[in-house]
Protein backbone atom coordinates (compact mmCIF):
# COMPACT_ATOMS: atom_id res chain seq x y z
CA UNK A 1 0.00 0.00 0.00
CA UNK A 2 2.83 2.40 0.83
CA UNK A 3 4.25 1.94 -2.66
CA UNK A 4 1.06 3.32 -4.25
CA UNK A 5 1.25 6.46 -2.14
CA UNK A 6 4.99 6.85 -2.80
CA UNK A 7 4.51 6.55 -6.55
CA UNK A 8 1.64 9.06 -6.51
CA UNK A 9 3.78 11.43 -4.42
CA UNK A 10 6.76 11.23 -6.74
CA UNK A 11 4.86 11.28 -10.05
CA UNK A 12 1.92 13.64 -9.50
CA UNK A 13 2.99 15.85 -6.63
CA UNK A 14 0.45 14.34 -4.27
CA UNK A 15 0.53 14.58 -0.48
CA UNK A 16 -0.51 12.04 2.08
CA UNK A 17 -3.59 13.17 4.01
CA UNK A 18 -2.56 13.15 7.67
CA UNK A 19 -6.13 13.44 8.95
CA UNK A 20 -7.15 10.08 7.45
CA UNK A 21 -6.35 7.50 10.13
CA UNK A 22 -7.98 4.35 8.83
CA UNK A 23 -7.32 4.29 5.11
CA UNK A 24 -4.79 5.41 2.52
CA UNK A 25 -5.82 8.90 1.48
CA UNK A 26 -3.91 11.12 -0.89
CA UNK A 27 -4.50 14.78 -1.72
CA UNK A 28 -3.87 15.32 -5.43
CA UNK A 29 -3.53 18.72 -7.18
CA UNK A 30 -6.49 19.42 -9.41
CA UNK A 31 -4.50 19.67 -12.64
CA UNK A 32 -2.94 16.20 -12.20
CA UNK A 33 -6.15 14.42 -11.10
CA UNK A 34 -7.11 12.99 -14.48
CA UNK A 35 -3.57 11.76 -15.21
CA UNK A 36 -3.26 10.19 -11.75
CA UNK A 37 -6.57 8.33 -12.10
CA UNK A 38 -5.65 7.16 -15.58
CA UNK A 39 -2.36 5.87 -14.21
CA UNK A 40 -4.13 4.11 -11.32
CA UNK A 41 -6.54 2.44 -13.68
CA UNK A 42 -4.31 1.40 -16.56
CA UNK A 43 -0.87 0.76 -15.07
CA UNK A 44 -0.25 -3.02 -14.78
CA UNK A 45 1.16 -2.63 -11.27
CA UNK A 46 -1.91 -0.71 -10.03
CA UNK A 47 -5.10 -1.91 -11.77
CA UNK A 48 -7.62 0.02 -9.69
CA UNK A 49 -10.47 -0.86 -12.02
CA UNK A 50 -13.42 0.09 -9.86
CA UNK A 51 -14.66 3.50 -8.72
CA UNK A 52 -16.47 2.73 -5.49
CA UNK A 53 -17.73 6.13 -4.51
CA UNK A 54 -17.39 9.83 -5.14
CA UNK A 55 -18.44 12.31 -2.50
CA UNK A 56 -18.32 16.02 -1.91
CA UNK A 57 -17.21 17.55 1.38
CA UNK A 58 -17.99 21.01 2.76
CA UNK A 59 -15.47 22.19 5.38
CA UNK A 60 -17.34 25.39 6.28
CA UNK A 61 -18.08 24.45 9.90
CA UNK A 62 -15.30 21.88 10.29
CA UNK A 63 -13.18 22.58 13.40
CA UNK A 64 -9.52 23.60 12.93
CA UNK A 65 -9.67 23.47 9.15
CA UNK A 66 -7.43 25.57 6.92
CA UNK A 67 -7.50 25.82 3.17
CA UNK A 68 -10.18 25.62 0.49
CA UNK A 69 -13.81 25.20 1.48
CA UNK A 70 -14.82 22.18 -0.63
CA UNK A 71 -13.26 18.83 -1.43
CA UNK A 72 -14.16 15.88 -3.64
CA UNK A 73 -13.17 12.43 -2.43
CA UNK A 74 -12.76 9.46 -4.80
CA UNK A 75 -12.61 5.87 -3.49
CA UNK A 76 -10.98 3.26 -5.74
CA UNK A 77 -10.82 -0.50 -5.42
CA UNK A 78 -8.82 -3.12 -7.31
CA UNK A 79 -10.65 -6.26 -8.40
CA UNK A 80 -7.46 -7.87 -9.74
CA UNK A 81 -5.31 -7.31 -6.64
CA UNK A 82 -7.79 -8.15 -3.87
CA UNK A 83 -7.78 -5.92 -0.80
CA UNK A 84 -6.24 -2.92 -2.51
CA UNK A 85 -8.00 0.34 -1.92
CA UNK A 86 -6.98 3.96 -2.18
CA UNK A 87 -8.75 7.26 -1.73
CA UNK A 88 -7.92 10.41 -3.66
CA UNK A 89 -8.97 13.85 -2.57
CA UNK A 90 -9.12 17.08 -4.56
CA UNK A 91 -9.43 20.42 -2.83
CA UNK A 92 -11.83 22.88 -4.48
CA UNK A 93 -11.98 26.55 -3.57
CA UNK A 94 -15.24 28.46 -3.58
CA UNK A 95 -13.98 30.87 -6.25
CA UNK A 96 -13.16 28.11 -8.75
CA UNK A 97 -15.72 25.28 -8.48
CA UNK A 98 -14.40 23.24 -11.39
CA UNK A 99 -13.06 19.68 -11.37
CA UNK A 100 -12.16 17.51 -14.40
CA UNK A 101 -14.62 14.69 -15.01
CA UNK A 102 -13.82 10.97 -14.79
CA UNK A 103 -16.71 9.77 -16.97
CA UNK A 104 -14.35 8.85 -19.81
CA UNK A 105 -12.53 6.41 -17.50
CA UNK A 106 -15.30 5.08 -15.24
CA UNK A 107 -18.94 4.80 -16.34
CA UNK A 108 -20.07 4.81 -12.70
CA UNK A 109 -18.73 8.35 -12.31
CA UNK A 110 -21.61 9.71 -14.39
CA UNK A 111 -24.39 9.63 -11.80
CA UNK A 112 -22.05 10.12 -8.85
CA UNK A 113 -20.75 13.35 -10.34
CA UNK A 114 -24.31 14.46 -11.05
CA UNK A 115 -25.12 13.88 -7.38
CA UNK A 116 -22.16 15.95 -6.17
CA UNK A 117 -23.13 18.70 -8.62
CA UNK A 118 -26.70 18.59 -7.32
CA UNK A 119 -25.88 18.66 -3.63
CA UNK A 120 -22.74 20.86 -3.55
CA UNK A 121 -22.73 22.81 -6.81
CA UNK A 122 -19.29 21.58 -7.89
CA UNK A 123 -19.04 21.65 -11.69
CA UNK A 124 -17.40 18.71 -13.45
CA UNK A 125 -15.81 19.87 -16.69
CA UNK A 126 -16.42 17.59 -19.68
CA UNK A 127 -19.35 15.72 -18.14
CA UNK A 128 -21.78 14.61 -20.91
CA UNK A 129 -25.03 15.34 -19.03
CA UNK A 130 -24.56 17.49 -15.94
CA UNK A 131 -28.07 17.95 -14.47
CA UNK A 132 -29.68 17.58 -11.06
CA UNK A 133 -30.28 13.95 -10.14
CA UNK A 134 -31.96 13.88 -6.70
CA UNK A 135 -33.60 17.26 -6.28
CA UNK A 136 -36.29 18.48 -8.62
CA UNK A 137 -35.70 20.86 -11.52
CA UNK A 138 -37.17 23.93 -9.83
CA UNK A 139 -34.96 23.60 -6.74
CA UNK A 140 -32.82 26.66 -5.99
CA UNK A 141 -29.52 26.20 -4.14
CA UNK A 142 -27.47 23.20 -3.10
CA UNK A 143 -28.88 21.50 0.01
CA UNK A 144 -25.83 19.68 1.40
CA UNK A 145 -23.80 22.87 1.69
CA UNK A 146 -23.47 23.85 5.31
CA UNK A 147 -24.91 27.33 4.73
CA UNK A 148 -28.15 25.92 3.28
CA UNK A 149 -30.84 25.89 6.01
CA UNK A 150 -31.58 22.18 6.45
CA UNK A 151 -35.32 22.60 6.91
CA UNK A 152 -35.92 25.01 4.04
CA UNK A 153 -38.42 23.32 1.74
CA UNK A 154 -39.19 24.12 -1.87
CA UNK A 155 -42.35 23.16 -3.74
CA UNK A 156 -42.39 21.66 -7.22
CA UNK A 157 -45.27 22.84 -9.42
CA UNK A 158 -45.41 20.10 -12.08
CA UNK A 159 -43.88 16.69 -12.66
CA UNK A 160 -40.57 16.39 -14.49
CA UNK A 161 -40.91 15.71 -18.23
CA UNK A 162 -38.54 12.79 -18.82
CA UNK A 163 -39.76 11.41 -22.15
CA UNK A 164 -37.09 13.09 -24.39
CA UNK A 165 -34.41 11.48 -22.23
CA UNK A 166 -36.12 8.09 -22.60
CA UNK A 167 -36.37 8.49 -26.37
CA UNK A 168 -32.69 9.40 -26.56
CA UNK A 169 -31.76 6.30 -24.59
CA UNK A 170 -33.91 4.09 -26.84
CA UNK A 171 -32.28 5.61 -29.93
CA UNK A 172 -28.84 4.84 -28.49
CA UNK A 173 -29.90 1.20 -28.22
CA UNK A 174 -30.89 1.10 -31.90
CA UNK A 175 -34.64 1.65 -31.70
CA UNK A 176 -36.34 4.09 -34.05
CA UNK A 177 -38.57 6.80 -32.65
CA UNK A 178 -41.53 7.25 -35.02
CA UNK A 179 -43.27 10.13 -33.27
CA UNK A 180 -41.72 12.62 -30.88
CA UNK A 181 -43.86 13.49 -27.88
CA UNK A 182 -44.39 17.05 -26.73
CA UNK A 183 -44.95 18.23 -23.21
CA UNK A 184 -48.61 19.13 -22.73
CA UNK A 185 -49.07 21.73 -20.03
CA UNK A 186 -52.54 21.43 -18.50
CA UNK A 187 -54.86 24.40 -19.08
CA UNK A 188 -55.04 25.98 -15.65
CA UNK A 189 -58.84 26.30 -15.48
CA UNK A 190 -59.59 22.77 -16.70
CA UNK A 191 -56.93 21.33 -14.46
CA UNK A 192 -58.34 23.05 -11.40
CA UNK A 193 -61.96 22.10 -11.93
CA UNK A 194 -62.99 19.85 -9.05
CA UNK A 195 -59.59 20.26 -7.44
CA UNK A 196 -58.84 21.11 -3.86
CA UNK A 197 -56.60 24.01 -4.82
CA UNK A 198 -59.59 26.36 -5.23
Amino acid sequence: MESVIDILESKFGAKRDASAKWDACVVVPKEYLHNAVEFLKNDPSMQFDMLLDLAGIDYLTYPNHEGPRFAVSYAFKSMKNPGRRVRLKVLVSEADLKVPTLTDLYASANWLEREVYDQFGIVFEGHPDLRRILNHVEFVGHPLRKDYPAQKRQWLSTTDFLIPELEKRLEDKGYKVIQRSKEIMPVEEEYLEGSIRE
Binding site: N135, S157, D160, G194, S195, I196
Partner: peptide, 13 residues
Protein backbone atom coordinates in the same frame (compact mmCIF):
# COMPACT_ATOMS: atom_id res chain seq x y z
CA UNK B 1 -40.78 13.60 -1.23
CA UNK B 2 -41.20 16.96 -2.93
CA UNK B 3 -40.34 15.39 -6.27
CA UNK B 4 -43.26 12.99 -5.82
CA UNK B 5 -45.83 15.48 -4.55
CA UNK B 6 -47.19 16.52 -8.00
CA UNK B 7 -47.57 12.85 -8.96
CA UNK B 8 -49.60 12.08 -5.82
CA UNK B 9 -51.79 15.12 -6.41
CA UNK B 10 -52.43 14.09 -9.99
CA UNK B 11 -53.36 10.58 -8.81
CA UNK B 12 -55.88 12.04 -6.36
CA UNK B 13 -57.39 14.24 -9.05
Amino acid sequence: SYKQAPILKRMYE
